[in-house]
Nucleic acid binder design. Structure first.
Length: 219
DNA sequence: ACCCAGGTGGCCC
DNA sequence: GGGCCACATGGG
């Protein structure tokens, strides 16, 4: 589908300006914004989306490295755990570790039991997939959209505190609730996962600074 | 010794 | 339907 019909608007212009100034977000978030992702990458991103809730990326990163070292950076391995104490201990640096251990387990169970793996879940239509993720305890709109956008490369816009702040400061839109803002961004931009990924990352990079937004690879 | 970091669900009115 | 609270660690 051609995007030529898309009217020039402030949001799209802002996206183009940020892209020009900072370059593609893949430079700063190599793993999350990569064009080609392995299934392992996708699992890491989805688990990372939960671990980073209300937490600095640095702390979520420490937790992911612990999971990797323990061989638990895998939905299947997490589902097989008999109790969550070990999982909770590993993700301690990410904070809210008991809550998040349950969330990682519930998410992993949902995917493994209903779809076997994330690749099959990608086959679900976007709206259905989003609705289903929202039924999982601990997966709210931002986490659901983060998983869909970065782990599954589905075109759904992630609204976070940085996006809200930007909209507020620049007076782009008067409604600040999640769904209204998400719709606003999506109507202003080409419906393209790569555009949403880069823009969301660039919003954060432009506000926080490149250094603090760097997400190191975990291999 | 504070304050905050890419939220969410529960409870209250 | 909005306003508060608990959840918890690491860094400035």
């Amino acid at each position: 589908m051609s995007n030529k019909h898309l009217k020039v608007n402030k949001v799209y212009q802002l996206y183009l300006e940020l892209l020009k100034e900072y370059g593609p977000a893949e430079k700063f978030w190599p793993q999350w914004c990569a064009k080609e992702k392995t299934l392992k990458d996708r699992e890491l991103i989805a688990l990372g989306a939960i671990l980073t809730q209300r937490t600095s990326w640095h702390n979520a990163h420490l937790a992911l490295v612990n999971l990797k070292k323990a061989g638990l950076l895998s939905l299947e391995k997490i589902v097989q755990l008999s109790d969550l104490k070990k999982l909770a201990a590993l993700i301690k640096p990410a904070g809210f570790f008991q809550t998040k251990a349950c969330r990682l387990f519930d998410f992993s169970s949902f995917i493994c039991q209903n779809y076997k793996d994330l690749k099959n879940f990608t086959g679900e239509e976007l709206k259905i997939a989003r609705q289903k993720l929202l039924t999982i305890s601990g997966i709210g709109p931002e986490t659901a959209d983060t998983i869909l956008l970065y782990a599954l490369d589905k075109p759904t816009f992630v609204v976070d505190e940085y996006a809200k702040r930007m909209v507020r400061e620049r007076g782009l839109f008067k409604y600040l609730n999640y769904d209204r803002l998400k719709e606003f961004f999506e109507k202003s931009l080409p419906k393209d996962a790569k555009v949403y990924q880069d823009f969301h990352a660039l919003i954060i990079i432009s506000q926080k600074g490149k250094e603090k937004s760097m997400m190191e690879r975990i291999d």
